[in-house]
Write a protein that binds this DNA or RNA. Structure first.
Lengths: 199, 199
DNA sequence: CCTTCGTGCCGAAACAGGTCGATCACGGGG
DNA sequence: CCCCGTGATCGACCTGTTTCGGCACGAAGG
């Protein structure tokens, strides 16, 4: 057997380099050559592990996506039992907003990707999957709240879950545009949740 | 005086060519070369009228943006007096959704631009301006509805306007991802408006 | 008529980024 | 000792954008 290396490890190193560049120098500086330089390896090596730049981008996206996803589940798990559905929903939605530099860059990358994914629909599947799952989870939380009498029974939980998710995604893009501040975004979200959980 | 041509006309021709390509061949095919070929002119001519590709892109965006904006005001104006605020809001929000091929391409371009505009903040100003104005207009409609007793008085009109706008933008991005169909998007919006205008 | 000059326009070449192919190094089996 | 597959590198190539020098043309001025 010839020399073997940990492919996952190597790929992660490149993803890290990518995010360092994106955060420090902006997205325009994210080129294969720069990534290779930042990671201290040759361009050829990058291609050895990722057939194309898109593949690297997608991997990097999933890679930090898991980090952010993990943070959400951690915060939710940290809630005292029995968990307040409203608090669960609030945490999930708030955590998705780009309120710090790091998540700003991440969301910006997501949006850039989204712009391109319309043309390679097969590559967008990963995002779709995650959003759908989250949507269902939110819906179950809302139904729980309805059973508890915290949310009106005639509200359609599935539709409202979709609505809340769309709302946060819209808020995210508005935040990226600096249309308003983090505090205002939180306030908008709070206003909506107040109205939903008014009972 | 040497030969004079209508700059606006020439620029519009290039913008039209750009959208034809985007709609027919996808966004990846939108290159300066292709635009020049589609318009039947030389690459040099394109550069004569637009210093850079970004400038052309921004112009094309504003150009169709006005078209869409015009359609909205036309539809709103066509409403019988006195205009029902709920109907006004519904039209504005629905019209912003990418429900046909043409608006899909437009919204996709907007999103792509948004991804890049974070790095040239000065260029994003155009979008910002429009969103802010729309937001204020929605807020006045909501306040009108509140005076009419159609919307609860304790609802914060400004925040809700921001919320509705964010909601449609989120729905737009979800529609681009084919997360759900046009009918579902309409239903989500309807559900939200039902809740808002429940009185 | 002819010069002048500014506008509109062009094409070659420079430059940058992504991708491909040939190639080398190396280490474990036959 | 040779073979072969994996890891890795480099240079070339292609496509796309931008820069630059210059040409054409037509109106003003002599």
């Amino acid at each position: 057997m010839p020399k073997q290396v940990d492919h996952g490890e190597r790929r992660s190193q490149l993803a890290e380099a990518l995010w360092r560049i994106a955060e420090r120098d902006g997205f325009a500086a994210v080129t294969v050559r720069n990534i290779a330089a930042e990671a201290g390896v040759s361009v050829g090596r990058v291609q050895h592990y990722f057939a194309s730049k898109d593949e690297l981008l997608l991997f990097a996206l999933q890679w930090v996506g898991e980090e952010f996803g993990g943070r959400i589940t951690a915060k939710v798990s940290a809630l005292p039992e029995p968990r307040d559905p409203r608090e669960v929903v609030r945490i999930i939605l708030t955590e998705r907003l780009p309120l710090q530099q790091r998540s700003r860059v991440y969301v910006q990358a997501l949006i850039t990707w989204l712009g391109r994914s319309a043309e390679h629909p097969e590559l967008a599947g990963y995002l779709l999957e995650g959003t759908r799952r989250l949507c269902e989870y939110l819906a179950t939380q809302l139904r729980q709240a309805q059973r508890d009498g915290r949310v009106r029974a005639r509200v359609d939980a599935s539709r409202t879950a979709e609505e809340l998710l769309a709302l946060t995604d819209g808020l995210s893009s508005h935040l990226l545009q600096n249309l308003y501040t983090a505090a205002e975004a939180r306030a908008v979200l709070a206003e909506r949740l107040d109205q939903l959980f008014e009972h």
